[in-house]
Write a protein that binds this DNA or RNA. Structure first.
Lengths: 141, 141
DNA sequence: GGTTGACCTAAAGTTAGGTTAAGGTTGTAT
DNA sequence: ATACAACCTTAACCTAACTTTAGGTCAACC
C-alpha cells in the first residue's frame, strides 16, 4: 500500500510539516519519491513512524531515535546495541510511570482536599486536613 | 526553619539558577529577603516548590502553575477553579500513564525480540516473530 | 584587610522540536 | 487549458524552560 503525506498525517495524527521535518532530520531514510519528487509512504514507513511515536512518548530524543534507525540499517552487527537501548528505555519508562504515579497520588489528595473545601466554602476549616488524613494515611501533605 | 537558595537547591535537586528563574517568573511570590537582599526560603516555600515539581512532572506549564498559585493567594473565592484544575490534571495524568504503559508494552516486546535475536545472532531468523507471538498474544507487532 | 565562596541582577544565549512563510511544482477534475 | 488542492524546498521564526555570562555585593574566616 502507498500513502501520500497527507494521508499519513491523517492516519497517525502527525502534522504534514512534522512529517517533512522528520524526513529532513533523517528519521525516515527509506521513503520513496515519485518521478515528480512527491513522497510515497509504505507500510514500513508507517511502522517506523509508529515506533518514533512510541519512543517519543517515553521521552527519547529525535537524535537518539535516528541513531537507532541507523543501527537497524547497519544490520546484525548492531543487535546488541539495539537490545541494550531497549533495556535502558524500559528502565527509564518504568521510572517515569512511577514518578507520574507519585504525582497522581498527590493530585488525588488535592482533589479530595478541594472537594471538601468546596463543600464547606473555605480552606480554613480546622478539620479539613484531619479528615483527609483518615483517607490518605500514608501521605503527610 | 530558614534555608539559603543553595541549601534548597541541594535538598530538592533543583539548580540555583532554576530557583532564581522560578522566582523571577513569579512562581514563588512569598519569598522573604534579608536586609542584604538575599533570599530566605521557609517551609512554605519548600512546599510550593514540591508542588511545582509535582505539577511539572504531570506536564503542566509554568505559566499555568503560576496561575494556580495566584488563585491560592486570592483565597476562598477561587476554590472551585482550583478544584477543577486538579480534576483536569488528574485526567491528563491518568491518560499520560496509560500512554506510557502502552509504549512500555511495545518496548518490552522489543526487548524480547532483540534478546532472542542476540541469542541467534540475526534478526532474520524465520521463527523469531512466531516465537514472540506466543509470548505476546495480544500484540500484532 | 583581604581573600574566598555564596549570593545578587539583567541580559543574552541555548536547545529541542517543531511551525510558518514565500515562492514554486504537480496532478486531477472540469 | 485552467483552476485548484496538495505537494515541494529553503529559510526564518517560535516557544518553553532553562543556563550562561558579566559585573557586582555580602559575609565569614584568616
Amino acid at each position: 500500500m502507498a500513502y501520500s503525506i497527507g494521508e499519513v498525517s491523517n492516519m497517525l495524527n502527525i502534522s504534514v510539516s512534522t512529517l517533512r521535518y522528520y524526513d529532513k532530520e533523517g528519521l525516515l531514510p527509506l521513503i520513496n519519491r515519485t518521478s515528480g519528487n512527491i513522497r510515497v509512504f509504505d507500510e514500513t514507513d508507517i511502522e517506523c513512524l509508529k515506533m518514533i511515536e512510541c519512543l517519543k512518548t517515553t521521552g527519547m530524543q529525535l537524535k537518539d531515535i535516528k541513531l537507532f534507525f541507523g543501527w537497524c540499517e547497519e544490520g546484525d552487527s548492531t543487535i546488541n546495541k539495539r537490545y541494550e537501548l531497549f533495556l535502558e528505555q524500559k528502565e527509564k519508562t518504568e521510572k517515569q510511570i512511577s514518578l507520574l504515579q507519585d504525582a497522581l497520588d498527590r493530585i488525588n489528595y488535592k482533589c479530595e482536599y478541594y472537594r471538601i473545601a468546596k463543600e464547606r466554602g473555605t480552606t480554613n476549616d480546622p478539620g479539613l486536613k484531619e479528615e483527609l488524613a483518615m483517607k490518605f494515611l500514608s501521605q503527610n501533605k
